[in-house]
Design a protein around this nucleic acid. Sequence first.
DNA 1: ATCATATATAGAATAGTTCTAAATTTAGAA
DNA 2: TTCTAAATTTAGAACTATTCTATATATGAT
Lengths: 136, 136
Amino acid sequence: MKSSAEQAAIEKRLKAAGVRPTAQRIALARFLLNGADHPTAEDVKKWADENFPKMSLATVYNTLALLVRAKLIKEVKLPHTSRVIYDDRVSAHYHFLDEKSGKIYDVDPSEVEVKPRLKKNASVRGVEVLLRGRWG
Amino acid sequence: MKSSAEQAAIEKRLKAAGVRPTAQRIALARFLLNGADHPTAEDVKKWADENFPKMSLATVYNTLALLVRAKLIKEVKLPHTSRVIYDDRVSAHYHFLDEKSGKIYDVDPSEVEVKPRLKKNASVRGVEVLLRGRWG
DNA sequence: ATCATATATAGAATAGTTCTAAATTTAGAA
DNA sequence: TTCTAAATTTAGAACTATTCTATATATGAT
Ligand SMILES: [Mn+2]
Ligand SMILES: [Mn+2]
Ligand SMILES: [Zn+2]
Ligand SMILES: [Zn+2]
């Protein structure tokens, strides 16, 4: 995608989500919504240091929180690390942790059948699944 | 269970697991293996302050790590909190988070059918499931 | 241009946990 | 019984990820 057209598309998405498209937000949204793969805040800051110098860490965190509130990205907390990861796939899905590489892969809910049959009469409102193993 | 008999049983379990049964370890193991319900380190420290005064926070963390290595308890990291919880159920199982009370309930693997059918040819070595909803 | 508000920034503060170095306790050996 | 070496406990410092605070800067409507 051509860079300027991509930028315009991102601006549109930000506005549609009620987020004012400042230079910092556009830059981060481009990274997060195109190409970033489950980055941590640190990953995002590292990208910013290389591609949008002088952006503060506070702005990285502020913008991540803003994009989460706007439902353009999702926060994901996984058990193998204490860092939050950010996910541009906002619909419900599961994750696969490759234990060799540490990489996270998305798994469509249709690829894992999950059927709770609890003894207890509980109402299940959500299911989170993490698969671990070797992806390749 | 009578207190002294309970203490003797705990000492036996510690020894069998290769853990020297010091006073601090016996006290914490009694709490963790009988009666504690998915406590955080802070919960354990609070119990110690009331039942074994002068125990340091370092000893709480040291002992938790030791009991985990000895496979008498398990560390569990769940997404709704940044605190680790400790679980005296060491066999594989799932968890249910009651969103009203914040309480964690154990779910036997037999109560949730999980069948990964990944497109990708990956080897699944473990599955973690968190159910969220109302338990009662 | 002015002004009010929104955004960005640097650095302090916080939470949970781990590390460090010193003090105490313990189990054997003498 | 000491003695001694190793294990354990301890207080507090350090650390990591994140959030908060206060100030500066930018925006954009009048
Ligand atoms: Mn994408
Ligand atoms: Mn129990
Ligand atoms: Zn994902
Ligand atoms: Zn459990």
